[in-house]
């Protein structure tokens, strides 16, 4: 079976998608890499929404509204959909067809299943560092590129 290197893109709802994708494109070697985008859902919304007293304060007006589990689920769904759509648009321009997967926060251990060899590349955004899953990612044996909104750094 032919081996195809894989670029693993870790995305959250706050990830700078444009910058991440630019990093992906920069690392394409033209050898037919497979691009896999893993969207890790922020469980904090769901947890906060389970509390009966939490409110969402509008960024525009400061007004309050109930933050229910349904609202959190809806936000999750909308965010996943938007991220998927934007990645799709970016990939079309690069003539790529990335695989898109959604992981819950407690499923992050599954990420290691996607990494097969040391030649694979992990592309993450800087905000991931402050999330619990970052610990899991540091255990992976592949190369990692961390992208900030302003700059990229290699680890």
């Amino acid at each position: 079976m032919e081996y195809r290197p894989r670029i693993l893109l870790i995305v959250t709802e706050r990830s700078p998608l444009q910058r991440l994708w630019e990093a992906v494109e920069e690392h394409l070697s033209g050898t037919g890499e497979e691009v896999v985008a893993l969207y890790v859902k922020d469980e904090r919304w769901r947890r906060a929404a389970s509390l009966p007293f939490t409110r969402e304060v509008s960024r525009v007006s400061g007004s309050h509204r109930e933050f229910t589990p349904q609202r959190a689920a809806q936000l999750d769904q909308d965010t996943v959909s938007q991220v998927r759509s934007r990645l799709g648009a970016l990939a079309i321009r690069a003539e790529l067809q990335p695989v898109f997967e959604v992981l819950a926060e407690h499923e992050v251990s599954r990420i290691r299943n996607y990494v097969r060899v040391e030649e694979d590349l992990l592309v993450i955004s800087a905000d991931v560092r402050s999330q619990p899953m970052y610990q899991e990612l540091t255990q992976l044996s592949c190369r990692t590129v961390c992208v900030d909104a302003e700059e990229r750094e290699y680890e």
Binding site: R14, R47, A48, L51, E56, V60
Partner: peptide
């Protein structure tokens, strides 16, 4: 208390040991 950002605003939620509490924990 932590201030979570949503696409449209902010949600304030209790946090313990870096983890947002859900209703059971609360």
């Amino acid at each position: 208390i932590t201030m979570l950002q949503t696409p449209t605003g902010y949600v304030l939620a209790p946090v313990r040991d870096g983890k947002v509490l859900d209703d059971d924990d609360f």
